[in-house]
Design a protein around this nucleic acid. Structure first.
Lengths: 198, 198
DNA sequence: GTCTATATTAGGATAGAC
DNA sequence: GTCTATCCTAATATAGAC
């Protein structure tokens, strides 16, 4: 919740963070390319020129949001890898990913929908690919230790499980009836034990 | 593979289907909104005007692609529901969805990335929502019959499993090392039995 | 920090020749 | 069925007043 600081005086005004947050929401609702700066200004009740006072370009807004999403995911994985056993690294990694997806939902949504349409988008996709490879390596290790079934390719396994996790951004709603911790448990349950009753 | 008919004579020319196929590919690479008609023309080696000879508008291309994707998914579910037991309906439904996703990958990719940014997109999203509800009802029935665990909400279950299935369009490549039938089996295995070795 | 212009470019779409 | 040329609108971004 913590915005950097309260608006000082004079006109209502917006902080950089507030503007960014609104922009990311609009990007997700309409798509980044389909969103004009006029759309953003309209949503904030400002003019385009006023917005350009806060930011250099529309793309800068995208860049900041993507950095937040990637930083969150990388940080969660870093923390998970500090555990000593592969089993813990795996379950904490999945749990951490679900936490980041729900806590920074808007930013991650933007990341997951990138098409690599500019230098900034390409750089973010490359960074995401590196993250995916770290996770796939972890899954391979878990298979080697007999923690996960190895009759399905590690790459396919990773993609299916992260497909499940990533899809959360499409329907999760903050303040809704689903608690992030509980959701993380359910994801782990489905991924590890499946839907068939034992 | 079957294009409606071979180009007749004269200039090289394109059939409507060929133009559509290329357009959908470009839409997926760059995003629909970020793709200009000039981009499409350039990819085909034509001018914009030549393209408008084949189609009325850029949005018409989108509409045709979305109809193909939705028709495929609905048809697969219709077929699955003809089976007599809920267990068969469920497994055939999942199998059918994977088949459609791999066979009409480009069109489904477009569908899954929609933001509801126009009347056509809104109509497609509504049609997709109806499809989702049919699947959720099937999952609920399977839970009631004890075929699926019921300690996780039917809606959440449906979303997680379809999140896994839908993510296939992001990485599956026709002609790659993965056979669609085998992939469908693996999805069913992960969804029903999970990743933990038994 | 916000406003009213306005410069500049790109995009969707059309007209009419070949 | 494709071309060149062009219209019209909307978009990003800037200049300069308050």
């Amino acid at each position: 919740m913590a915005t950097t600081r309260a608006p000082r005086r004079g006109r209502p005004g917006y902080t950089r963070d507030q503007v960014l947050q609104v922009a990311v929401d609009v990007f997700n609702q309409q798509g980044y390319d389909a969103t004009s700066v006029a759309d953003l200004a309209g949503r904030l009740g400002l003019t385009k020129s006023a917005l350009y006072h806060h930011f250099d370009s529309k793309e800068q807004l995208l860049e900041l949001a993507l950095d937040s999403a990637l930083g969150g995911l990388e940080g969660a994985l870093d923390e998970a890898m500090q555990h000593s056993t592969v089993a813990e690294q795996l379950s904490e990694g999945i749990r951490g990913a679900v936490q980041v997806l729900t806590a920074r939902q808007a930013e991650v949504t933007l990341l997951l929908r990138l098409r690599g349409n500019s230098a900034i988008e390409l750089a973010a996709l490359q960074r995401r690919r590196t993250f995916d490879q770290r996770v796939a390596a972890l899954v391979r290790q878990a298979q080697a230790e007999g923690l996960l079934r190895d009759d399905i390719d590690a790459g396919t396994t990773t993609r299916l499980v992260f497909g499940m996790i990533n899809s959360i951004v499409e329907w999760y709603r903050t303040g809704g009836s689903i608690d992030p911790d509980r959701l993380a448990d359910e994801v782990l349950t489905v991924a590890l034990d499946g839907l068939r009753p034992r």
